[in-house]
Design a protein around this nucleic acid. Structure first.
Length: 459
RNA sequence: UCCCCAGUAGCUCAGUUGGCAGAGCAAUUGGCUGUUAACCAAUGGGUCCGCGGUUCAAGUCCGUGCUGGGGAGCCA
């Protein structure tokens, strides 16, 4: 008999008679002569109840089944006379695949997130983490679906990069040099290294994506990204996934339209395809989740310039630790006030002063601000960061000079402005931060399978 | 990296003024003929985070290190 997954089984209207289920025992309740078991196979949140009676030939062994054990159950799918479930399996053949010893760390009760992080290899067997990682999978699929429907091309950009000055934070060095020899020589000779020059793990695929947007039109990258920052917060990890769309013939407004459409599409997809898991999050993880999802789906995101934001912050009676002044980079407290208290919904901030933004952002006509855009979201902070790119060669070169960037390293990037340059825009969306937003899970380490943070690379 | 808080049984946590190491859940064993984080009873279980110090006596006080959490900076 072929195995049926539990997500299909529990949806059945009529019993097909006998079924075969394989999974892990969440709990066993024994009485004299029979046992109830809850089996979960990871296909969905729900367990299937199995009843095993004393007339089974291996019933003596069945009585020893512990939480966490793996089993294979064949039997009749019957309507359950008990409350709480429609179906149950009346076991006719129950095979113990592996008995979990008493040291199995997951109990049939709530565990703290901190404890579960220490057993990250087992935590997907819990309701909450199972739901989180099913949703993560579904959201990755939804990203590809969204872009395919819109005629975008999926681009995979290199994870190892030679440019050491992308300006998006500390980078991880990639080298094949022998540490012992480096110690003898007293310094690293990069000409002897694998690539003949210094190389690092990427902090963004954007520059590569721009080249392909100016060839294929609309592209997106979706893959891992690395930051060697010594960040110890609930919103940062050293290895995370980022979605980066890049669109030719697209200005800042269209860039925002795209970001808003994307966030709404993915959120709608989560509600439609993962309703059961989403219900768990709003019932047990974050009581305000339903309201936030509703706001994301049904409100128009705010859109204001940096200058307007500064005015709003100044006029507010709120006391900030950092004084608000035109030209400063906005602090967390400022961003939170704008998204959580003033607008109470996601809000785009545009047109930042050029001094606090990177070289590739397009200079506005005022000569002081650039066509940058950040999307601030209640509870998360910055979800999206992007811009319209500077497509005018002379202005781009001038900016790079001002910022002392080595022009030679960027010869290929500048070529794109030399040969058929065109307006284009794009942004980066932090995949884990998006997952935090739609699950209400408050620590980024709990939405990524095996988190990498300063001082920790377990599993 | 900085600020604040915490570390006691497998888990969650209590532990008074410095004076015998505790609870609930879990586990183990037994009971129970339809359970729902089953129920009832019994039993076992400790490097009180590490190191050093004060003291007749330290889980408790002091110093230091490590780990975890919250916040800040950096950013996705």
């Amino acid at each position: 008999m072929k195995r049926t997954k539990i997500n299909l089984l529990i949806k059945l209207e009529k019993s097909p008679g006998n079924v075969l289920v394989k999974g892990w025992v969440r709990t066993r309740r024994g009485s004299k002569g029979f046992s109830f078991m809850e089996i979960n196979d990871g296909s969905c949140l729900k367990n299937i109840q199995v009843i095993a009676t004393g007339d089974l030939k291996n019933y003596h062994d069945i009585e020893t089944i512990t939480t966490g054990s793996s089993v294979s159950v064949a039997g009749k799918l019957a309507e359950s006379p008990g409350k709480g479930q429609k179906w149950e399996i009346q076991a006719e053949n129950l095979e113990i695949i592996n008995l979990a010893p008493e040291s199995y760390p997951l109990q049939k009760k709530r565990h703290s997130d901190e404890f579960l992080r220490t057993i990250a290899h087992l935590r997907p067997r819990t309701n909450k983490y199972g739901a989180a990682f099913r949703l993560r999978s579904e959201m990755a699929f939804a990203i590809h679906k969204f872009y395919r429907e819109k005629g975008f091309r999926y681009l995979t950009t290199p994870l190892i990069t030679g440019s050491d000055c992308e300006g998006a934070g500390e980078m991880f060095r990639v080298t094949s040099l022998d540490p012992e020899k480096v110690k003898e020589q007293g310094e690293m000779d990069f000409t002897m290294d694998f690539f003949g020059q210094e190389s690092n793990l990427t902090v963004s695929g954007q520059l590569s994506a721009e080249m392909f947007a100016l060839a294929l039109g609309d592209v997106y990258t979706f893959g891992p990204t690395f930051r060697a920052e010594n960040s110890n917060t609930s919103r940062h990890v050293a290895e995370f996934w980022m979605l980066e769309p890049e669109m030719a013939f697209c200005d800042l407004k269209e860039n925002m339209d795209h970001g808003e459409e994307l966030v709404k599409y993915l959120t709608r997809h989560a509600m439609a395809e993962c309703s059961e898991d989403m219900a768990l999050f709003s019932n047990f993880v974050d009581k305000s989740l339903s309201k936030r999802i509703d706001t994301i789906l049904n409100s128009e995101f705010g859109r204001i310039s940096y200058g307007e934001a500064i005015e709003i912050l100044k006029k507010s009676k709120k006391k900030f630790d950092f004084k608000v002044k035109y030209g400063i980079d906005l602090q967390s407290e400022h961003e939170r006030f704008l998204a959580e208290e003033y607008y109470k919904k996601p809000v785009f901030l545009t047109d930042y002063p050029k001094g606090i933004k990177p070289f590739y952002m397009r200079m506005n006509d005022d000569g002081k601000t650039v066509a940058a855009v950040d999307l601030l979201v209640p509870g998360i902070g910055e979800l999206i960061g992007g811009s319209q790119r500077e497509e005018r060669l002379d202005i781009l070169e001038k900016r790079m000079n001002e910022m002392n960037l080595p022009m030679d390293d960027y010869w290929w990037y500048l070529d794109s402005r030399r040969f058929g340059s065109a307006p284009h825009s794009g942004f980066g969306l932090g995949f884990e931060r998006f997952l935090m937003m739609i699950t209400g899970i408050s620590n980024i380490r709990d939405v990524i399978p095996f988190p990498r943070t300063p001082g920790r690379i377990d599993f």
